[in-house]
Nucleic acid binder design. Structure first.
Length: 585
DNA sequence: CTAGGGTTAG
């Protein structure tokens, strides 16, 4: 640094800034020097300081420097907006925008991409509409980049109609605009829409897809459980010479795993020339989800032997593998590895605590799980209480279950799933009056119920079924097949599980009947249409019920066909009358 | 001088 006696010159400052661009401490000292030097420092020098501060993420100091500037031009405002977006400080961004308008500084075409993104991060839908109005007022509503940003914002707010409208009205969409829309569809769980959009994009002669498109689409196929379509898209990408980097291959790994094909994933993983933490984590999590705890833990130790550093996602996979296999001591050991680690990134997060509660609870150690929550250094959230509640259902612990449910209603009163769980506990205990009371309470509060559905992929298309669905072309054949199978498995000893503890409230509605659950229809469809040795792959949007679980076991034995069912939480691989989940849901 | 898109977990 500079000796105190030496008078500071602008040249020296400039030099200093260039040589110490990434050291936060130096930047603060330089700023102090500037302030005490008495020099009238030009904005250009301060700009450099500002940019360096943003680079190291010190937005507080950056703002101070900005405020000292004399009539900053628009691009400097934009620089600060950029910094706020990068450092995820949307509130500051919006406040700055207000100040900008108060001072009558005119936003330019570069302002809105940052500001709209900030509003998107802020998550306040009404502000979103207001900023859209500003965009229009300043005449930027036809600027592709701004519109793309607005479209993403609306999607993230769940304003699907607005987003779609805006996107469709966009003239001359370029590659990035298409990719952005497809990506945000997948991110918001609208993979079906992403698929539609992909087809439209392919039909548009003006653009050609690239590796970004492929990644999003593989991710979409994973979400939808469409192995065939996913493979098709990847093959096409290879043919068209698209660069299949490690991110593309990771997305493919994930797609295989989410379609229940750990074998495809394993082969690919071994073939991959380049692997990163995401590749390893995807595999470990994938094995855990698919009920292959041994493979998950083996891969983790291989990772350690190779000297690779796991991250917090890797540990989520490891803990969930332990939970699935009932390995309480191992789980505790892995958890303590995290807790003891000097790596700040490996500090156990809420999700890890939830995993531990799940592990203890599933193994029947309900009291220990409850004590664990009370001793946690973090505030328990709905996910953590939910894990304990789930364990109470499995082990039929009405007393603790009620206590936990009460706490949950405080934490997350609007989540219907927890109330369904509570009603399951009551049902298991035969407390039907409590079930009735809870149900009428839910009706009064208007708790949202999600409609159940299942899907099966056949012939490159997805076939959807609701409960008691009669809209499918092959309806007659499906129901006949279902009757035939039911009759046969009854002879094998199948008894419908009508008093199931996993019975959803909604499934008890009068007009419905157990035997027409969406997953049963999907399986029947798979039996009619599936080819030879191929497993039947079913995706269910909610957790499957106990009766369908038993049903699938019998069908796998009866027909000698594998059934791979992905429900909301995990996979069930049914083979020869058994399920990979070992009754651990 | 500045601007929009991608992978694990939730």
């Amino acid at each position: 640094m500079i000796a105190k006696q030496t008078p500071l010159t602008k040249q020296m400052l400039s030099k200093l800034l260039q040589t110490s661009s990434s050291k936060p401490k130096h930047l603060k000292k330089i700023h102090a020097l500037v302030l005490t030097s008495g020099l009238s420092v030009k904005n250009s020098l301060l700009t450099q300081l500002l940019e360096n501060l943003i680079l190291v993420g010190d937005m507080c100091h950056a703002r101070k420097v900005f405020d000292e500037m004399h009539k900053p031009r628009v691009f400097l405002w934009n620089t600060l907006f950029k910094g706020y977006v990068k450092n995820k400080l949307p509130f500051e961004s919006v406040t700055l925008y207000k100040k900008m308008r108060d001072l009558d500084v005119r936003p330019d075409e570069f302002t809105y991409p940052f500001v709209v993104k900030a509003v998107s991060q802020l998550g306040v839908c009404l502000s979103g509409f207001a900023f859209h109005a500003h965009v229009v007022k300043h005449g930027f509503e036809t600027l592709g980049i701004v519109v793309t940003e607005l479209v993403m914002m609306y999607m993230k707010f769940g304003e699907l109609r607005s987003a779609q409208c805006l996107f469709e009205s966009m003239q001359g969409k370029d590659l990035v605009a298409w990719n952005a829309f497809i990506a945000v569809c997948v991110q918001t769980g609208n993979s079906g829409l992403a698929l539609e959009c992909y087809h439209k994009m392919c039909a548009d002669a003006a653009v050609e897809f690239d590796s970004f498109t492929v990644v999003s689409m593989l991710s979409a196929c994973g979400q939808l459980g469409s192995l065939e379509i996913g493979k098709e898209i990847y093959d096409r990408a290879r043919k068209e010479g698209i660069d299949c980097n490690v991110i593309v291959e990771n997305a493919r790994l994930d797609m295989y795993v989410k379609c229940g094909s750990t074998e495809d994933a394993r082969v690919l993983f071994e073939e991959m020339e380049q692997r990163n933490v995401v590749s390893w984590s995807t595999m470990i999590v994938g094995y855990a989800m698919n009920g292959d705890s041994d493979e998950a833990l083996a891969l983790f130790s291989r990772m350690q032997n190779e000297g690779l550093r796991p991250n917090y996602v890797t540990f989520l996979g490891v803990l969930s593998a332990c939970s699935h296999a009932g390995l309480v001591d191992e789980g505790k050991r892995y958890f303590s590895i995290m807790a003891r680690s000097s790596d700040k990134n490996l500090e156990p997060r809420k999700e890890h605590y939830a995993c531990m509660v799940d592990l203890l609870g599933r193994s029947g150690l309900l009291e220990e799980a409850y004590e664990f929550i009370k001793k946690m250094p973090v505030e328990p959230d709905a996910g953590i209480w939910g894990a304990l509640l789930g364990a109470c259902v499995v082990h039929r612990d009405v007393k603790l279950g009620q206590k936990v449910a009460d706490l949950l209603v405080e934490t997350a009163p609007d989540i219907g799933a927890y109330q369904v769980l509570l009603s399951n506990i009551y049902a298991a205990a035969g407390k039907w009056d409590c079930v009735d009371r809870l149900r009428s309470k839910m009706r009064k509060l208007g708790t949202k119920k999600v409609a159940a559905y299942s899907s099966v992929e056949f012939d490159g298309k997805l076939h959807y079924f609701n409960r008691g669905d009669k809209s499918h072309q092959q309806t007659k054949a499906i129901y006949e097949k279902l009757e035939e199978v039911l009759k046969k498995i009854r002879n094998m000893g199948y008894v419908p599980q009508t008093g199931s503890v996993f019975h959803d409230v909604e499934t008890e509605e009068k007009e419905s009947s157990l035997s027409h659950h969406s997953e049963k229809l999907a399986i029947a469809f798979g039996l009619i249409n599936g080819r030879g040795e191929d497993p039947i792959r079913v995706v269910k949007n909610l957790r499957t019920c106990e009766d369908c679980h038993v049903f699938a076991k019998f069908v796998s034995k009866l027909t000698s066909r594998d059934i791979i069912m992905r429900d909301k939480n995990r996979f069930h691989h049914f083979r020869n009358g058994d399920c990979s989940c070992r009754e651990f849901w």
